[in-house]
Nucleic acid binder design. Structure first.
Lengths: 125, 125, 125, 125
DNA sequence: GTGGTCTAGACCACT
DNA sequence: GTGGTCTAGACCACC
């Protein structure tokens, strides 16, 4: 299900957060769907349950999931209002990346192609 | 000149690397222009010189600047050949960000507008 | 395990990088094998841990090892794609050394003998 | 005549030593031929005369040239006896480089081709 | 004066 | 306990 890279400089829990975000964003994990339990996922990925829990906590605080005591963790519906802060960050990040991509030689056509590629995948799911 | 957040989770030297990259990419620091000396910048930012040096070294190994003992550190001309590795990373990053931006409600029109905004600034310099 | 020359003009961390490279190249340290911890090696060699870390970091950025926070540093499998830059350097170095060896009186037979000697050892492991 | 790389991490005087060695090795500078004067070379290369002098001193101590007060510096005839020490170093260096080249994927055929290339150039000069 | 190396020692993040 | 970051302060090599 996941491919975690122990070699990466990025901490494992951050990788997990990112992967799960991707799954939610790409609608693989639908609204109110239950995430795998901490213990199950830990066993599946052969990593420490604490690490999983840390990832879930992070996702919760970012508003992507919610936890119900004794039942598990579930995907949050999108809350457009709450995300203005995050949108601002994403905009800033995009600007930086665009500048860097152009500096490294990418044309705006290539960048747009990439965008449409992602967008196409989005709709297909 | 810079605004560093000492409290941030991101290491100071990485923040520095990013800021300096921005300056180079946006042509504020031109080719072969001298960067502030390690000691000067350290004093200016009230940061340890070693930290500055770490940032400079990182920028050097990424090909953005070069350092000459006894003379200083200077901006490198772009080397399109050497940056294939970095381009790959940027492409991956862009894909992730696009997905996230769309998830948060941005339309592809908005994203493209942002791209053109950056590109415009680029050409004006 | 290592013999470092603290008096040498070559920085300690560079000596370390070289020695460790040798061990990896000669398969003394196998793929994914754990390197000694920064602190352990520092104590063993009576050298400051920062110096060891600098060496490890250099090896990491050259693609020979990878480091995982909280776990340790490990030998990387060879990545033939990523090393084009380094190969170029090695080729240049070889050319220079060949010229010097010939100047000092070595015949090309002697040089080839040396090559086969090394190659033999390589295959025996 | 020379191409010095100020960008290089290698000190300029070392680059000079290497270049001059090459010229001697490749017989561009013949036995007892006069080297350019320190001041001339300094002006030609637009670098500090002290740097040139340091390079000449180094070459002298390595036995490649000799200096005559008031007359200049001259190329030394090869002294096979004196070079056993250096030969030993070169042999060690070659072994290391061979191992590294093989590790990075070069075949012994490629290496030998490189050798013959250098050797050919040697005889042509 | 410039970058580069090294030490000693503190503190943090991850597992 | 692991690697990673940062500081303070010393000394060296190069130009």
């Amino acid at each position: 299900m996941f491919e975690l890279d122990v070699r990466s400089r990025k901490p494992i829990y951050e990788q997990l957060v990112e992967k799960l975000k991707q799954l939610i964003i790409n609608d693989v994990l639908k609204e109110d769907e239950k995430l795998p339990s901490v213990r199950d996922l830990a066993q599946q990925l052969t990593i420490n349950p604490n690490t999983i829990q840390k990832a879930y906590r992070e996702l919760e605080s970012q508003g992507y999931i919610y936890s119900v005591k004794g039942k598990g963790s579930f995907v949050n519906p999108v809350q457009p209002t709450k995300n203005t802060e995050e949108l601002k960050k994403v905009r800033e990040e995009l600007k930086k990346l665009f500048a860097e991509a152009i500096y490294l030689g990418m044309t705006s056509e290539e960048i747009q192609a990439l965008l449409h590629e992602v967008q196409g995948g989005e709709q297909d799911d």
